[in-house]
């Protein structure tokens, strides 16, 4: 009896000590920073579309690659069926790919694209995102729409010199999107035959306030400021900052005071943004912001959930509604924001 008791006690202890973590089938989604409103919106789309189809658990890397590495290290210990990663540092993504490869776990990158050489390290690595240049190309379309024929421009070429005097509001220096958007929009306009007079490229770190301040400085101090005919911004926040500065300085002037910018009546300069954030949509509606570009994260999240489901169920990826370029890349192009949306 005593021996039974002792044995029972030991057995209980053993069971209690070795009780292992339960394995779950949810898919980890590791975001670079949930403080980023765009990422938060993206996450909400993903969760919305994944509902009742796949279980997704999101992790916040708090904009720290070290933290993200730690998170991934822990997550991979549980041998998930696949992981979705929004890398903090796209240059460091190769270590994540190597780890996933070692465990033969498919990995889908979103939002920030790893280097092509890293994408080729492993056959089960995928990327869903927008080709950075398409956002710029839509801006180019809008410039064409505004200025018309490069050799006989519309009346927006105010000084009639057949050259566009423009200012670029650039995001963070060295940031991939900022670099590509700036580069592509300028190169593409030149390629179309437009003569460009870049009055300045202001680096505003994506921020409204910096753009506002730099615009004030430019307008008040640059000798050529009065020549300004076009503002191209890498994102909506900076565009709005610039518009606010121009309203303050009277460059934008609501002559009939109807609260709406009417190109035919009021004083204004076309400003182009990207991202179609809520604030920008209001500016577009009121005519202050000429146009913006939609980063179609909803479509991306639909494709992402489809891809995850297909990978989990072993479905042939060729049967999916979208194309996997090189078997790895799913490109969801930027769209011009239309007011009807």
């Amino acid at each position: 009896m005593k021996r039974m008791l002792v044995f029972g006690l030991l057995l209980t202890l053993f069971v209690a000590l070795t009780a292992c973590k339960q394995n779950n089938n949810s898919v980890p989604l590791i975001l670079y920073n949930e403080q980023d409103p765009y990422i938060l919106g993206f996450k909400e789309y993903i969760m919305e579309h994944a509902e009742n189809r796949i279980s997704i658990v999101s992790y916040d890397s708090q904009n720290s690659q070290v933290l993200q590495n730690e998170l991934i290290d822990d997550i991979l210990l549980d041998n998930p069926q696949l992981i979705i990663v929004n890398p903090v540092d796209r240059l460091g993504a190769y270590t994540i790919i190597d780890q996933a490869k070692e465990k033969d776990i498919p990995i889908i990158f979103i939002n920030r694209e790893p280097l092509p050489e890293d994408m080729n390290r492993y056959d089960k690595v995928y990327y869903i995102g927008a080709p950075a240049e398409t956002g710029a190309l839509i801006q180019v379309d809008m410039v064409v729409e505004l200025f018309g024929n490069p050799f006989g421009m519309s009346n927006l070429d105010r000084n009639n010199d057949n050259t566009i005097q423009l200012l670029v509001l650039k995001g963070e220096q060295g940031h991939q999107d900022a670099e590509i958007r700036t580069e592509v929009v300028l190169e593409e306009l030149e390629a179309l035959g437009y003569d460009l007079d870049i009055l300045s490229i202001e680096i505003c770190d994506w921020q409204k306030q910096i753009a506002h301040d730099k615009m004030m400085e430019f307008l008040t101090q640059d000798p050529d400021a009065s020549q300004l005919e076009l503002v191209i911004s890498n994102n909506d926040y900076m565009a709005i900052g610039a518009i606010d500065a121009m309203i303050e300085l009277g460059v934008f002037h609501d002559v009939n005071d109807d609260g709406v910018m009417d190109p035919t009546i009021d004083d204004w300069i076309p400003v182009l943004g990207i991202d179609a954030i809520e604030e920008a949509i209001a500016y577009v509606r009121d005519g202050y912001l000429y146009g913006t570009v939609l980063n179609d994260s909803e479509t991306m999240s639909i494709y992402l959930v489809d891809l995850v489901e297909a990978l989990l169920n072993g479905v042939d990826l060729a049967t999916l509604d979208f194309v996997l370029e090189d078997g790895k890349y799913i490109w969801v192009d930027y769209k011009k924001y239309e007011e009807t949306e």
Binding site: Q65, N69, V88, D89, L91, G92, T95
Partner: peptide
């Protein structure tokens, strides 16, 4: 402890 160094390709 191995970690990547931000903005570089270094570990």
């Amino acid at each position: 402890n191995v970690n990547t160094l931000y903005a570089t390709r270094w570990r």
